[in-house]
Amino acid sequence: MSKGKVTRENILNKAFELASVNGLESLTIGELAKQCEMSKSGLFAHFNSKDNLQISVLEHANQIFTERVIAPARLNTSISIEQKLTTLLDNWLGWNHSFQGSCMFLDAWKETGAETPPTQVVLKKTIETWIGYLTIQVAKGVENGEFRADLDPKQAIFELYGLYLSAHLFYSIHGEQASYEHFWQGVKRQIASWKQ
Rank of each mutant, 00 (worst) to 15 (best):
V6Y: 07
T7K: 13
R8I: 01
E9S: 11
N13W: 03
N13V: 07
K14A: 08
A15S: 08
A15D: 04
F16H: 15
S20Q: 10
S20C: 07
S20T: 10
V21K: 05
Q35A: 15
C36H: 01
E37P: 00
S41Y: 00
G42Y: 04
A45K: 14
H46Y: 13
F47T: 01
S49N: 03
H60S: 03
A61T: 02
I64W: 00
F65C: 03
F65S: 03
T66P: 02
R68V: 06
P72D: 06
A73K: 08
R74E: 15
R74L: 11
I79G: 07
I81C: 15
T86L: 11
L89F: 14
D90L: 06
N91H: 06
W92G: 09
H97D: 12
S98C: 14
Q100H: 10
S102T: 12
C103T: 08
M104V: 08
L106R: 10
D107R: 13
A108H: 04
E115M: 13
P117V: 07
P118H: 02
V121R: 12
L123M: 13
K125L: 02
E128M: 14
I131C: 04
G132Y: 06
Q137W: 04
K140G: 04
N144A: 04
F147W: 08
D150F: 03
P153H: 09
F158G: 05
L163Q: 07
A167K: 11
H174T: 07
G175H: 05
Q177D: 15
A178H: 09
Q185T: 14
G186C: 04
R189H: 15
Q190S: 06
S193E: 04
K195A: 06
